[in-house]
């Protein structure tokens, strides 16, 4: 007799042939009424919240360690002796000249809120098994996410390039822009924290856009339709909203306070 190449199930004890065990301590119940994947995404986001929390706490501590400028915003001048007022640092807009405090960061915030809305619309379309709608809203989210990343690239290049006037440093040299060792806006750590916090957030947005592109391809190929649910869109949605949430905090503590 020829040897069969298919795997035959081995003989199993009678107890294992029973239906899956569903007792309380056999893993049979779902206390959180959420799937494994979504639950793990929540726990990942919780740990990520602590990473960003540590960054923002470090920002708070270092900012309080440095001197505060006590005068009004009109009297403000750049110096390494005190922490800069954000609206004096972030006052440029691509293509426009003059003092436009926080205008560009307002636009970036709106772009990210919009991307959150299109993301939740994609999740909603997934619940209805509406493939065309999921594709449409995922594409909008990818577009807004990429717009945010481009805005941040401009913001970084402007921050590194510096204001036209520059700032006279303690050793008499005129400093333009910023690097990791010094910057024209304030104490060296101001520039470092800007790069690390907005950079870490931007990396998250970039990862999110990559996940969304993959998700769009999978949706187009009908992967989720065959699977019978669009839970993957929901899980990536959770991540995407978290990134928006982090921006809300970065925006407040870096640009407003």
């Amino acid at each position: 007799m020829a040897h069969s190449t298919t795997l035959e199930p081995t003989a199993t004890p009678a107890t294992y042939t029973d239906a899956p065990r569903t007792g309380t301590w056999d893993g049979g119940n779902e206390p959180f009424k959420a799937s494994y994947g979504k639950l793990m995404m929540w726990f990942f986001l919780l740990s990520d919240a602590f990473t960003f929390g540590a960054f923002l706490t470090a920002y708070g501590m270092i900012r309080h360690k440095h001197g505060v400028f006590t005068g009004t915003a009109k009297q403000f001048y750049f110096s390494t002796a005190h922490w800069p007022i954000p609206e004096k640092v972030f006052n440029a807009f691509p293509g426009l000249h003059g003092d436009l405090p926080l205008a560009f960061v307002a636009l970036m915030t709106m772009i990210l809120i919009f991307s959150s809305v299109t993301m939740v619309l994609a999740v909603e379309a997934g619940h209805r098994m509406d493939k065309a709608d999921v594709q449409k809203w995922l594409l909008w989210t990818i577009l807004f996410g990429s717009m945010f990343l481009s805005s941040q690239a401009w913001e970084w290049s402007h921050f590194i390039g510096g204001h036209e006037e520059g700032t006279r440093m303690a050793d008499g040299t005129l400093m333009f822009g910023a690097n990791l060792a010094m910057n024209q806006y304030g104490p060296p750590l101001f520039g470092d924290l800007f790069f690390f916090i907005t950079g870490f957030h931007g990396t998250h947005v970039f990862s999110g856009v990559c996940l969304l592109v993959w998700c769009f391809i999978a949706t187009t190929n009908g992967t989720f339709e065959k699977r019978g649910h669009y839970e993957m869109v929901e899980k990536i949605g959770l991540y995407w909203h978290f990134v928006d949430l982090v921006w809300v905090f970065v925006f407040t503590f870096f640009y407003l306070v």
Binding site: T57, A58, G60, H64, K65, H66
Partner: peptide, 16 residues
Amino acid sequence: LIWLVVALVTEGSFIG
């Protein structure tokens, strides 16, 4: 995190 922020911000003021 609320405790962490309050503790370290206070600490930062003292260090300064």
